[in-house]
Design a binder for these strands. Structure first.
Lengths: 141, 141
DNA sequence: CAGGTAATGCAAAAGCTTCTCATCATATCG
DNA sequence: CGATATGATGAGAAGCTTTTGCATTACCTG
């Protein structure tokens, strides 16, 4: 992703936008909050205002470059959108996030919506649980 | 629900708690925000602080009397818990909410969690769409 | 009904996000 | 390639929802 992709998305290729795009691509965590992005920029010695981070992430969302998710905890997180829809399973203990797709669930959501008389536009499915990774602070493997 | 149910839930039967319980039961809308509850109390001429409404709703949630949902829009909504789990389908246009349960979806969530190595504790499934009720401001029946 | 403990109300604060507005960078056109 | 108009940025203030601190008040027990 570079200034080209920004223009294709209808956005001027400004320095802050390019930097934020880079952060999103290079981040170790795939799902980051606006604050995470802001800190990463500071750590990289790049001066970008927090307000700009929020603005740009919202523009990216509108342009379809990123997705915003509202997991529990009040803070929105963003991830690069790479063309393939997926849902999330989140660890209550360590915040670890895994992505998944289940075709049966997807199909049944459409059935449910139709039955209820809704034209489905979107959905949000988040499973919460305790992961069993050795890294997890709660895991007593 | 009355003072008895509060005590069973381990909560002192105070006036504010009883009043809030009443609001939740008598509300036309099943899903209400803290602000909604606060306004309803004021409209009923009952003086309860907003902070108390937030505190009590959180206690009710902990006690299992209500469920909290974070739909889009940033404001949490609460509904009385009546023993039966369900998910929600929300109209983008008018905010109308319908409840549903789909056993296949429920089952597959557990499968997904197991495959990912998670002990599932909870989940949040919200379908967004446009409803086709005559009341809906967007509906062009 | 008196006393201890817990709940309330108010106001202040906290956390996240958006807005305002003066300044600055970008794309365009000459 | 440089001037210009347009749109983006930064800093701080403001907005909204929710939480907290603390003095006062209400509830339950005996």
């Amino acid at each position: 992703m570079d200034r080209h992709d920004l223009k294709k998305a209808g956005l001027k290729a400004t320095l802050p936008r390019i930097r934020i795009l880079n952060i999103l691509e290079q981040s170790e965590k795939r799902h980051v909050s606006a604050e995470d992005v802001y800190r990463a920029l500071l750590d990289a010695g790049e001066e970008v205002g927090l307000a700009t981070v929020y603005r740009v992430l919202t523009q990216f969302e509108t342009a379809g470059l990123v997705e915003r998710h509202n997991f529990e905890g009040g803070q929105a997180v963003f991830e690069l959108y790479e063309g393939k829809h997926h849902d999330h399973i989140v660890c209550n203990q360590c915040g670890y996030i895994e992505e998944f797709v289940d075709q049966t669930i997807e199909k049944h959501q459409h059935t449910v919506a139709k039955k209820a008389g809704f034209d489905i536009t979107d959905h949000s499915l988040i499973i919460y649980g305790d992961c069993t990774r050795a890294k997890c602070p709660h895991y007593e493997g």
